[in-house]
Amino acid sequence: MIAFVIRRLLQSIVVMLTVAFVAFFLFNFVGDPINNMVGQDTSMADRERLRQDLGLNDPFPVRFATFVGNALQGKFGVSYRMAEPVGRLIASRLPATLELSLMAASFALLVGIPMGVYTGLYPKRLSSRFFLTISLIGISLPTFLIGILLILVFAVLLGVLPSFGRGDVVKLGWWSTGFLTASGWKAVVLPAITLGLFQMTLIMRLVRSEMLEVMRTDYIKFARARGLTDRAVHFGHALKNTLVPVITITGLQLGAIIAFAIVTETVFQWPGMGLLFLQSVQFADIPVMATYLILIAFFFVVINLIVDLLYYVVDPRLRIDVQIRAN
C-alpha cells in the first residue's frame, strides 16, 4: 500500500514538473521576455541590466529551479496585458470557476444517477428509451451549442433567466460568492446545465449499464428470494454496487469540468479563470497562460491522485494485483 502511494506521488510530481517545464519554456523561449516588458525606447544597456537583474543570463537549470521555487511560493510574475500580479488576477477569478464547476457537478450527479437507475431498472419502458435518445443527443451536441440553445430559449424567447455574468456577488474575504443573492442563483442555472449536461449523460449511461449488469447477478436474485422489498433490493443492494465506478468517473470528470469551463465561460461571459485564459491566449499574455496551465495541472494531479487512492481502497482486486506483481 505504502509503495503504491509513494509511486503514485512520484508520478504526480513528475507530471507537475513536466507541466512546469512547458510553462517555463513558454515564458523564456517563445518571444523575448525583455521585449514584452520594456518600451521601444529602452537602451540596449538598460535591457542588458534588466536581463542580468532578472537572472535571464543564468544557466538553464538554475533558471528552471528559480522558476519552480517562485511558483511554489505563488509568485507567477506580472500579466503583460493587465500589468497586475498574475497570482492576484487568478485568485480573483478562481471562485467564479469553482462555484460554476461545483454546481455543474451537482447537477450531473443529482440528475444523472436517478435517470440512470430508472433506465437501468426499466429498460423496456417508453420513457427509458426517451431518456436514452436524449442522452445520445447530449453526447453529440458540442457544449457551446447547448449553451446557445439554452440562451435562445430561456433568455431570448422566454426571458426568464439571465444569459451572461454572475449576477450580484458578495465578498467573503478574498472569495466572492454568488450563492448569497437571488440574482447569483438565477445566473448560475444556465451555465451549470450547459457545463454539466455532457457529464450528466455520461453518468446516466454508466449507472444504467452497471445497473443492468448488477440486476442479473445471483445475489440480487437471492435478495428477491428472501422476500426483500423492491426498494431494499434496488437501492440497498443494486445501487450500492454500481457506485464504485461512478465515484471514479465523477472524480476524473471533475477535472474535465474545470477545463471545459473555458467554453461555457465564453458562451455566458462568466468572469472565471477560463475566460481569463482564453483572453490571454488571444493576447499572447504568457504569464497568465503559464500560471493557468500550472494551476489546472495541479487540480488534475490532485484529483487523479485522490481517485486512484480511492480506487485502491474501494476495489480489493487492485490490491491483490499489486501483490502478485510484487512477488
Partner: peptide, 16 residues
C-alpha cells in the same frame, strides 16, 4: 490525464 481540448488549445496558443 488532460482533456484533449485543453491540449489542442495549448498547442494552438504556443504556435500562435
Amino acid at each position: 490525464s488532460f482533456p484533449a481540448i485543453l491540449i489542442a488549445l495549448l498547442i494552438d496558443g504556443m504556435v500562435r
